[in-house]
Simulated assay, not measured.
Amino acid sequence: MKANKKDRLPHEREWQLQEAKNRLSQVVDSALHDGPQTITLRGKPAAVLVSFEEFKKLTQPRSTLSQFFRQSPLHDTELDLSRSADFSREVEL
């Protein structure tokens, strides 16, 4: 059973795991030049091989954490960070 075509990008190619193992150089070359390569296991998508540049784009934060908080609509909200002096409650597990 092949992956649903609507779930893949138009340039993705599917490789059965055994074929990908036997032709790893070609799979890597295709990922570098043609885009993501899907590897299937028992007919179902199991992994995607992407170029290192694509991986960096996908995993790089879009902004720093401080920028995120500055851009938040709640950036002017004051938080009460004081600790409660109440005793803890028993919880039955």
Rank of each mutant, 00 (worst) to 15 (best):
2 K>E: 10
3 A>Q: 09
3 A>C: 07
5 K>I: 03
7 D>S: 14
7 D>E: 10
7 D>N: 14
7 D>P: 01
10 P>Y: 07
12 E>S: 05
12 E>K: 02
14 E>P: 02
17 L>D: 06
18 Q>R: 09
18 Q>T: 14
19 E>N: 04
21 K>G: 04
21 K>A: 06
23 R>S: 12
23 R>T: 08
24 L>D: 07
24 L>V: 12
25 S>L: 15
26 Q>I: 04
27 V>A: 01
30 S>R: 02
32 L>E: 03
32 L>R: 06
33 H>Q: 12
36 P>A: 15
37 Q>M: 02
37 Q>R: 04
37 Q>F: 05
40 T>D: 02
43 G>A: 01
44 K>W: 03
44 K>G: 06
44 K>H: 10
46 A>H: 04
47 A>V: 00
48 V>D: 01
49 L>A: 03
50 V>R: 03
50 V>N: 01
54 E>Y: 05
55 F>D: 09
55 F>H: 15
56 K>E: 14
57 K>W: 05
59 T>H: 07
59 T>K: 01
60 Q>W: 04
61 P>L: 09
61 P>S: 12
61 P>A: 13
61 P>M: 12
62 R>N: 13
62 R>A: 14
63 S>E: 15
63 S>C: 06
63 S>P: 00
64 T>F: 11
64 T>G: 13
66 S>T: 15
66 S>W: 12
66 S>E: 14
67 Q>I: 07
69 F>S: 02
70 R>C: 11
71 Q>A: 15
73 P>W: 05
73 P>R: 07
74 L>C: 12
75 H>P: 04
76 D>H: 09
78 E>F: 07
78 E>L: 13
81 L>D: 04
82 S>A: 05
82 S>D: 04
82 S>H: 04
84 S>F: 04
84 S>H: 01
86 D>F: 12
87 F>A: 08
89 R>S: 14
90 E>R: 11
90 E>C: 07
90 E>V: 10
91 V>F: 13
92 E>T: 10
93 L>S: 13
